[in-house]
């Protein structure tokens, strides 16, 4: 797939995303029935679940493209990895914030050290470190390689963290309300499904936009370097000519 194709798909996706988000807003805020026990607060669920899902999809993309980058050493996998990581981090942040806002009125607490919440928080931290390593690496090429290793280990670590917290709780049950399962009616499930599809498309739109930006940035850096080298060569050549003339 060339850049042109990607740009074309992108320009088609933008109106789809825009319409989709409007539709989801209408469905979630107006059309979906009022949940009997939680009331209107429950509607945050139609954002919370899709962003959490998108975060996971994005990190899966990071995982796969990190592996491909280490095997094939093609820059484009690195561009894809960093794009997906940034958006995954954004989605995880939204997931954590919406979860906290939802938790307070429903469970009476902002936060529970429950397996899902704990592993999400640690996942967030792993990908913050992922982006920091890229930003602080001593050489750009090394940063990509180091980040790829973190992208792989970090993703593999999330289920390990999850199960270790499950065990931690099983042995020491916490005296708190556990996130219960909502009774989903048919129309609620439909809203959730629509919202998840829209958010996933939106995620891919954003990732591909970010990918094109990363590609342009990297190509610009190469251009600048060649230009600088050419300038330098010209300067050296000029000095040589001057010296020859002086003789």
């Amino acid at each position: 797939m060339t850049t042109k194709h990607l740009e074309k798909i992108n320009s088609l996706l933008l109106p789809v995303c825009f319409a989709g988000v409007l539709l989801v807003m209408y469905m979630a805020l107006g059309w979906a029935p009022l949940e009997t026990t939680e009331g209107h607060v429950q509607r945050i669920f139609y954002v919370h679940v899709p962003v959490s899902w998108s975060a996971f999809v994005a990190f899966f993309v990071v995982f796969v493209s990190s592996i491909l980058f280490l095997i094939k050493r093609s820059e484009k996998w690195d561009w894809l990895a960093v794009s997906a990581a940034e958006l995954g981090l954004l989605m995880t942040t939204l997931s954590l914030i919406s979860g906290i806002i939802w938790g307070r009125p429903t469970w009476g607490v902002w936060w529970v050290w429950d397996p899902r919440l704990t592993s999400t928080l640690l996942m967030w931290m792993i990908y913050v470190a992922y982006l920091m390593v890229r930003a602080y690496s001593s050489e750009a090429g090394r940063g990509s390689r180091m980040a790829a290793v973190i992208g792989i280990i970090g993703f593999a670590d999330v289920p390990v963290v999850y199960y270790s917290v499950v065990w931690w709780q099983n042995i020491h049950p916490q005296p708190l309300i556990r996130p219960g399962n909502l009774e989903l009616t048919g129309s609620m499930a439909l809203v959730l499904l629509t919202s998840t599809i829209v958010f996933t498309i939106f995620l891919f739109y954003l990732i591909s936009r970010r990918f094109l930006l990363e590609k342009a940035t990297s190509e610009l850096a190469v251009m600048k370097r060649t230009l600088r080298e050419e300038e330098q060569d010209a300067r050296i050549a000029k000095i040589k000519i001057d010296r020859a003339e002086n003789k």
Binding site: L122, M123, M125, I126, V128, A129, M132, V133, Y136, S137, S138, E139, R142, G143, M146, V149, I150, I153, G154, D157, V160, V161, Y163, S164, V165, W167, W168
Partner: peptide, 25 residues
Amino acid sequence: LAINTRFREIMLPLLMFPVVVPVII
């Protein structure tokens, strides 16, 4: 991994602690 970065003293715990949590638990 961290010796390849600037600010390595702070990068190492940032990278390592989230991953090593299961062992600590």
